[in-house]
Design a protein around this nucleic acid. Sequence first.
DNA 1: GGTGTGACAATGG
DNA 2: GCCATTGCCACAC
Length: 110
Amino acid sequence: MIEKDGFFERVYEVTKKIPYGRVSTYGAIAKYLGTGGSARVVGWALNSSSGLGVFIPAHRVVNRNGILSGKKHFGGSLIMKQLLENEGIRIKDDKVVDFKKLFWNPRLEL
DNA sequence: GGTGTGACAATGG
DNA sequence: GCCATTGCCACAC
């Protein structure tokens, strides 16, 4: 149950609910929130997640290609990759291996 | 209140 | 099949 005024808050809630060892996409989250085409807003929300005081598993969110597009914004080029590998997710050339299998769709599972 | 921007997505050449 | 362009929506100034 998400009752937040800001769109960002909803993005945080969904992102925090991403299961361990799973990844999701900006478009999927955006679609789940009802915005659909506002996938960019989702990424932007995660950008603001830094400094909230609450850790957001933004490293589990990648673009539709499974590429760690936001790794550079995560505070380091390798940080995001390390975190994903720490959860058992294999990263190949900054891309999620078996992305289709690890893909977590909030619209279906949440 | 209008303009700009952004960690994307989809389409066209 | 890869590169370029457009669309999209929410927030900051």
